[in-house]
């Protein structure tokens, strides 16, 4: 077992899935010889050959659309969109075709594909290289949406996504690609579908996060512990469908909830989480639900980006407000 970064864990999961199932193929821009701009597909071309790994022309709609066609023919394509800011041309394919192929043929044709893309900010990248479009996909019946927050969860969630018989949008937090490494056993074990992870148990407050802001929530919980506040940290991992049961159980117990979301605040997945909590456990809440999100502003370029995205400071302030310690 070796310590690997998240991008290496993703590479490991891809290789594992390809070795186990000859129907798994990888396609996208620069995924072959170059190994992907973040190196997520490095070595796959050499190991599995040109019949399993294809560099595509620069055409995001066709990348998703070709994957739909391959999937209908029984392949399990894993398509890469180079940056989530360039995923929008693929939305039509995902919404109008991938998400509904099973339903509109009553299961005759299906779409077991994965659309992978780097997601979110924090790496001082160029314009439109730091988007967090997860809510656009999480709104769509028929899709699954997953975001990992550590190397191990990336490995296991990606295996779950590839093995799932339905289309999955798999958004990888760019800022965590090389943020740290941990031991990940290449044992082929997938994470359970549609299940959140309770990363840290706590009693006073539930911090809900996913993707790139999970480490921030964990760090905030550590700080809060120093202040005598016991924060539970829930990594949603799957944004579609949402693991309501884990959320409800946690917040019913703690009575307080702060949602950390890297995407813009309004209409985000955090709003859906807050709505579900309001529907189910409003009477158990000791404080209003807090959302810490990017502002509803066009995401600034790198110089101002950190001012727009959620920070540990804002997360702590929200947690303290929820605890009545503002």
């Amino acid at each position: 077992m070796a310590a690997v970064t998240m991008v290496q864990a993703i590479n490991m999961a891809l290789a594992r899935a390809m070795a186990e199932d000859p129907q798994v193929v990888v396609l996208g821009e620069d995924v072959g010889r170059d190994g992907g701009v973040f190196r997520a597909t490095e070595g796959l071309l050499d190991r599995f050959g040109a019949d399993r790994v294809f560099d595509t022309p620069l055409a995001e709609a066709a990348i998703a659309g070709v994957a739909v066609g391959l999937a209908a023919q029984g392949f399990r394509p894993v398509a890469e969109i180079q940056f989530s800011g360039f995923i929008y041309p693929a939305l039509d394919q995902m919404i109008s075709h991938a998400a509904r192929m099973r339903n509109r043929t009553r299961g005759r044709l299906t779409c077991p594909m994965v659309l992978r893309a780097p997601n979110g900010g924090g790496i001082r990248a160029a314009e439109l290289h730091s988007e967090s479009p997860e809510a656009l996909f999480a709104h769509v019946p028929g899709l699954r949406v997953a975001l990992p927050s550590s190397p191990e969860r990336a490995y296991r969630l990606l295996l779950a996504a590839i093995r799932d018989p339905d289309p999955v949008v798999f958004l990888e937090p760019t800022r965590l690609y090389r943020a740290g490494s941990e031991d990940v056993a290449d044992d082929g074990k997938a994470a359970p579908l549609d299940r959140a992870f309770v990363l840290r148990p706590g009693e006073d407050l539930t911090l809900v996060a996913w993707g790139g802001v999970v480490p921030m929530a964990l760090a905030a919980a550590e700080r809060l512990a120093e202040e005598g506040i016991s924060a539970e940290v829930v990594d949603m991992a799957w944004l579609k469908p949402l693991d309501t049961a884990t959320l409800i159980e946690s917040v019913a117990r703690t009575g307080r909830c702060v949602i950390a979301q890297e995407a813009a605040r309004s209409g985000g997945v955090g709003a859906e989480i807050a709505a579900r909590l309001a529907e189910r456990v409003l009477d158990r809440l000791a404080a209003p639900i807090e959302r810490v999100a990017a502002y509803d502003a066009v995401l600034p370029y790198p110089r101002l980006e950190a001012h727009c995205l959620p920070s540990e400071t804002r997360l702590l302030a929200a947690a303290r407000r929820a605890m009545g310690r503002a």
């Binding site: 739909v68 391959l70 039509d92 075709h97």
Partner: peptide
């Protein structure tokens, strides 16, 4: 139903045959 968006599927199906 969407006009022309099935053309990339044809490329995908054809790729499956080729592979």
């Amino acid at each position: 139903v969407p006009v022309g968006t099935h053309a990339p599927h044809a490329a995908g199906v054809a790729l499956a045959f080729k592979l």
